[in-house]
């Protein structure tokens, strides 16, 4: 995972998919997790005009917010056949909960190699590292 290359990598898992994601900040971690999930599924957008969407979510902690955000993308892929490729993420934490606003651009799915059933909480923990943030995510496939 180089500075300019993808900041996600697939991890060994016997049955499902696991991925490690790193980023200098939390907002970048969320965007990179979404890009990593797209890479795992092999989602290819159809050429043509982009679809723009704004997602607002809240959760009691950052991990729950990450699950909620990626679950939105799972739903969009399965139900609406839309994949998103560009993400502008803003995050806020107040005393009660974490809030997320994502501006995303996407397109109808041209092809998809693999679908994800769900984003799990299995051993899910966002960690601070000397270089920023890191998380390992397990997907049920």
């Amino acid at each position: 995972m180089g500075i300019n290359g993808p900041r996600f990598e697939e991890l060994p898992h016997t049955a499902d998919w696991a991925m490690r994601v790193t980023a200098p900040d939390l907002a970048g971690l969320f965007a990179e997790a979404a890009r990593g999930m797209n890479a795992l599924t092999g989602a290819r957008p159809a050429p043509g005009p982009a679809t723009h969407r704004t997602v607002n979510l809240s959760a009691p902690d950052a991990e729950s917010l990450l699950v909620a955000f990626l679950s939105e993308l799972v739903y969009a892929a399965e139900q609406e056949r839309i994949t998103f490729a560009r993400f502008h993420v803003d995050m806020f934490e107040d005393s009660e909960e974490w809030k997320l606003k994502v501006e995303m651009d996407g397109a109808p799915i041209l092809s998809l190699n693999k679908s994800i059933k769900a984003v799990t909480y299995h051993n899910l923990q966002i960690r601070q590292t000397p270089k920023g943030y890191e998380v390992e995510i397990v997907f049920d496939v």
Partner: peptide
Amino acid sequence: GLGHQVCTDYVQEFQG
């Protein structure tokens, strides 16, 4: 997808 969503919803709900 219906079952996947039910489990997703309740795993999130049960965190609280």
